[in-house]
């Protein structure tokens, strides 16, 4: 099991090594010690690796991740798992702004809270936040699912396209063109599967969640909607 101590190994050396692990015969489980908030840790990985980062990370950890399961045993800075394609990124602590921004696939799990713009412009990623999320989350969300066990800040789902949002707690306000929609059986099944994928089955009551999505009234510009733009 390769162990990389970032107090002696550089970020560049770590990422280069991770980028060279496409051969399935290589060691699959990597441990990264002493991240000390460095940026772009494990960015651009494209291999079925299991990477444990033991500490807090800076911006863009696991950026554009493909295939890998990356676990941050600490807090994550801005843009964790930004533009993720596939795989799983699990933040054991809190996440800063723009968690999972523009993500196209895979699963992002945040055990703590996520700050503003969580899931901004999401394009297919699934995000499960066990705490609260900040304002403008899922802004212009195009596809994927955002699940929040706690509360959501202002302007949730502003200018939403087709991303789907489930929130268990209070929503301070909905953004333009984001509306509450009825929870049907198929939505409860979808939600249950996401909670299960996040390893949180039994932690929350699915009946307590409410569903939000696009009203689709702003999809084509109309002058009578001008006050909403």
């Amino acid at each position: 099991m390769p162990t990389v101590d970032l107090s002696v190994t550089s970020l560049r050396e770590l990422n280069q090594a991770l980028h060279e692990q496409s051969d399935p015969g290589n060691d699959r489980h990597w441990i990264v010690k002493n991240p000390k908030g460095q940026h772009a840790l494990a960015a651009g990985v494209d291999a079925e690796l299991d990477i444990d980062i033991e500490g807090h990370v800076g911006y863009y950890c696991a950026g554009m991740n493909k295939q890998a399961k990356i676990t941050v045993h600490g807090n994550a800075g801005v843009g964790v798992a930004e533009n993720m394609m596939s795989g799983v990124v699990h933040v054991k602590g809190d996440a800063s702004q723009s968690a999972g921004a523009t993500g196209r696939g895979g699963l992002l799990i945040i055990d703590g809270n996520a700050s503003a713009r969580c899931g901004i412009s999401m394009k297919g990623i699934d995000i499960v936040v066990k705490g609260d999320i900040g304002h403008m989350s899922a802004f212009m969300g195009q596809a994927g699912r955002l699940v929040v066990f706690g509360d959501a800040g202002e302007a949730l789902g502003d200018s939403l396209y087709e991303a789907r949002i489930y929130v268990r707690g209070a929503v301070t306000s909905l953004g333009a063109d984001c509306v509450e929609k009825p929870m049907e059986d198929k939505h409860r099944e979808e939600l249950a599967a996401l909670i299960d994928a996040a390893g949180a089955t039994g932690e929350v009551d699915i009946g307590e969640f409410r569903r939000y999505g696009s009203a689709r009234s702003l999809y084509n510009f109309k002058v009578d909607n001008v006050s909403a733009y």
Partner: peptide, 22 residues
């Protein structure tokens, strides 16, 4: 969506360099 000023942009560029191995 994930950076707002020159300090952030510097980190964003670092990420792009790291992903593409400089």
């Amino acid at each position: 969506p994930d950076w707002t000023g020159p300090d952030d942009l510097e980190v964003k560029i670092l990420e792009l360099r790291e992903i593409t191995d400089w």
